[in-house]
């Protein structure tokens, strides 16, 4: 069952990628092509009872660090140096619901 334009619009909204009408069409055909040509084989294997491996790390487990401050917190100018908008010591973002005054 292939993905519709609406499906892809929903995914784009969730993934926060604005797509215009042409891009949406192109993306839809890409996704369907990838699913059919590249990914489809994964659905054909006999996998009953196969325990999945989520990490290629052998028996490595329980990796933890001690609860000791690293003293590696960033100076404020470094913490904020790559942001496009700041105010006082904060990161600044536009109105979340879009019904405020800022444009």
């Amino acid at each position: 069952m292939s993905l519709s334009l609406d499906d892809v619009r929903g995914i784009a909204e969730y993934a926060r990628i604005a797509l215009n009408a042409d891009e949406l069409t192109e993306m839809t055909s890409y996704l369907n092509d990838a699913l059919e040509r590249v990914l489809e084989p994964i659905t054909h294997f006999e996998l009953d009872g196969v325990v999945p491996v989520f990490h290629p790390i052998g028996d490595l487990s329980n990796v933890m660090r001690d609860d000791v401050p690293s003293n590696e917190s960033l100076p404020i100018d470094v913490a904020l140096q790559n942001t496009a908008s700041q105010e006082d010591r904060f990161f600044r973002i536009p109105s979340i619901l879009g019904n405020g005054g800022e444009r």
Partner: peptide
């Protein structure tokens, strides 16, 4: 998060927001 410009610091109607991590 601090919501600035609305009533009582509410998110609804806020003009912008500030983030402290």
């Amino acid at each position: 998060m601090i919501h600035v410009g609305g009533i009582d610091g509410r998110i609804d109607g806020a003009d912008h927001s500030l983030i402290d991590y």
